[in-house]
Every structure is written in C-alpha cells, then in structure tokens.
Design a protein around this nucleic acid. Structure first.
Lengths: 81, 81
DNA sequence: CGTGTAAGGAATTCTGACACG
DNA sequence: CGTGTAAGGAATTCTGACACG
C-alpha cells in the first residue's frame, strides 16, 4: 500500500517503458493506478517495481493473461513462491 | 537524496499547502525541486517533509530568512540539533 | 512578509483508432 | 498480442502581476 504520487511520464523515466506499454498493462489488469479528479493516472513506487517485473516476464515469453492469472493465484493462495 | 517524482498538485494534497506557498518557499531558497525538460517542478518525499516543517515553523513565528539561515548552519556545522 | 487570485500560455496526459504481424 | 503513432481535447503547471497589510 504505497502512495500513488507519480504521473506516467515519471514512471516512464524510472522504468524505461513507454506510456503505451504502461497503459496497456493496466488495460490487461496487471497494474491499478489511481486517478486525479481530472482523470490523470497516478502511480506508486510499488507500481514501478511491478511494471519492471511485468515487462521482464513478457520478454521471457509470458503473455499478459498468464501474468494476470499468476497475480490472481498470489492474492488467493497467499504463497509468493 | 530521494527521488524527485511528484508534481506540485500531489505535494499540495500531501501537505495541505497551496501551490502559492510551495512556490514561495522555493523562491526563498527553502526547498529545491527538480524540473522536467518542460519546466515542471518535481518533488521528493523529503521535500514534502521539509515543507511541513517549514510551514509549521512559520506558524510558530519564524520568518523565511530565519529558516534559510538555519538551513545554512545545518549544512555547514554538521550538527542537526 | 506571506499568501490569494485572475490571466494567458505551455507542458503533460487522456482516449480511440489505425497499423503491423 | 504487444506496441508505435498521429489527432484533438482536457487537465495540470508555469510565470509575472496586482492586492492586502
């Protein structure tokens, strides 16, 4: 539960990812940024870490739906490994 | 040396201060945000803590120039108390 | 001195779509 | 499927100034 304080441009700098990639991962339910009243996305440092993990997994051959199902298992089973 | 990741609007939310106050404290050399290429200010969580401290001190009757001289002493003497 | 506000411009982000493969 | 891009609009921030006291 970290604080959602960064805009997408900052997240791009920290992760090296494009805005397109970050928004797409959200569309696939892999990350959940907050929104300002105006609709602007806000991310936490935890989101940044997750984004790196997601991108790395995709490079390793995983698909977004696979990553999503892995997230579901984590939140259910309680085991992380 | 924390990372400068927040825009001023976020800092306002976290501190309860107005943009005006935050920019004014910068003008008085009490905080030092970074800038994006476009000129937008970026703050760290440390800046947020400092801003709260600054505002509290002002309410206690201090002037900005007094707070600045206190900052100078800290960075020189090495003592924090 | 420290802060509020209206003013106009500039930087940043948003959505939906077309493209490639 | 995952990502790039051009398009137009909307949200956010910036500076300099006038105001109060």
């Amino acid at each position: 539960m970290e604080e959602k304080v960064m805009y997408i441009g900052t997240v791009c700098e920290l992760t090296g990812l494009s805005e397109r990639q970050i928004r797409y991962y959200e569309e696939r339910k892999l990350i959940f940024p907050n929104r300002t009243k105006g609709g602007v996305r806000k991310y936490s440092f935890e989101d940044v870490a997750n984004l790196r993990e997601i991108n790395r997994s995709l490079k390793d051959g995983f698909r977004t739906f696979e990553l999503r199902s892995m997230l579901d298992k984590r939140s259910h089973g309680g085991r992380k490994l």
